Simulated scan of single mutants.
Amino acid sequence: MIRRILERNVFENLGLKLGIPARATQHQSSNPELERRYASLMLERGQKPDHKVLTQLAKEVGLEVRQVQRWLRKQGGGHRLTRMDKFCESGWRFVCYTLLWSYGFLVTVNKPWFWNTTNCFTDYSRQGVDNDIWWYYTVSAGFYWSLFLTQFFDVKRKDFWLMFTHHVVTIGLLVFSLTASFTRIGSLILVLHDTADGPLEFAKMANYAQRFKLCDLVFSVFVILWIVTRICIYPLHILRSTLFELANEIGIWPAYYLFNGLLCSLFIMHIVWTYYIVKIALKAVSTKEEIKDSRSSSEDGDEDETSKSD
């Protein structure tokens, strides 16, 4: 409910002020004549028409073949997400990631385990869950559950199943670390992962608004933050702590392997996404083109001409 209110009343109005076409104007209007002739063809042939038939159909209704193909994709795929849809989605995520990271950083920066991860497991049996950390976990879990449930309706990308796995692993880690009293190391993992997500969503918003210089600048910040937090700090400090400090302080038992297995699978996903990110960055530098997310599924209609973004 909060997301819909913000998207409709804040981000959509902001998008309009930035020159992004409204949702209603970006979808192709219905064409009764095309619908009638296409339905007649389907009855005659019993299968989708080939390119030759599409050419003839386009000539009969006075459209280009590309317009007919676009109409068919819309019929088969339902509502096609527009640039405004994606701008609003990124705006919502930007707000959530920024607020989560800000709160998480404020409540963990003064904790004894923030700079010394050994303290995450010291006096393990007597550790409780601080009230502020409990709220951080609860709100974060709610947000990731919402991402998990809405990913089937949001922008579809080539890494859909990788993202699906990521959400499952993240929720699993949240639940496991809370029930196993690993909230100290868990809070550090949450803060670390939220660091780069906010700038990424802001870069997407700038891209959808066709503010490409701003997009390139913010995307550069994102790349630096991503590599520092997820490729350097995460394995060198977090994984080192859970693999070795945890074993030294508490010992090894079956849950040790489950916990570290989930964390290592998370790092593997980081490496895969880093490949995409580096690919985008190198292409942008070499071709001087605006950033385009190589994970994105192809868009149709005016999206191809007006937005090169993800």
Rank of each mutant, 00 (worst) to 15 (best):
Y136D: 01
L54A: 03
E64N: 08
D159I: 04
Q151L: 14
L258A: 10
L106W: 06
F148L: 11
T229H: 07
Y136M: 15
G104H: 04
R66W: 00
S177N: 08
R295D: 06
L246R: 07
V278K: 05
G198K: 05
K279M: 13
Y38H: 11
Y234G: 01
E44Y: 02
W161Y: 12
Q210V: 10
R37I: 04
S146V: 01
I280Y: 04
R157G: 07
S177M: 15
G15P: 14
L258P: 00
K308S: 14
E249W: 00
Y257I: 04
R4Q: 14
R37V: 02
L106P: 08
C264I: 15
F176S: 06
D132W: 06
I268E: 11
L54R: 12
D293W: 07
Y38A: 05
V95C: 08
G172Y: 06
H167D: 08
T55D: 07
L239A: 02
R4N: 15
G251W: 13
Y97M: 08
I2F: 09
L214V: 04
A209C: 12
L246C: 08
S294L: 15
I189V: 10
T25R: 02
P112D: 15
I20A: 03
R8S: 09
T306H: 09
R36L: 15
P49Q: 02
I277F: 07
E35A: 10
L43Q: 14
P199N: 05
I185D: 04
L190H: 01
I227F: 08
L149G: 05
E303P: 00
V61D: 00
L266W: 09
F148D: 02
N9T: 13
K17R: 12
R230I: 07
D300A: 12
A206Q: 04
I133T: 05
E33Y: 10
V175W: 11
F87W: 01
F121L: 10
Y256P: 02
E89R: 00
V168K: 08
T108I: 02
R184K: 15
G198Q: 08
L100K: 12
Q26W: 05
S177Q: 11
R70A: 07
V278W: 00
I185V: 15
T229M: 14
S177T: 11
L6Q: 03
R83H: 03
S286N: 14
A39T: 15
D304I: 03
F176Y: 15
R295G: 08
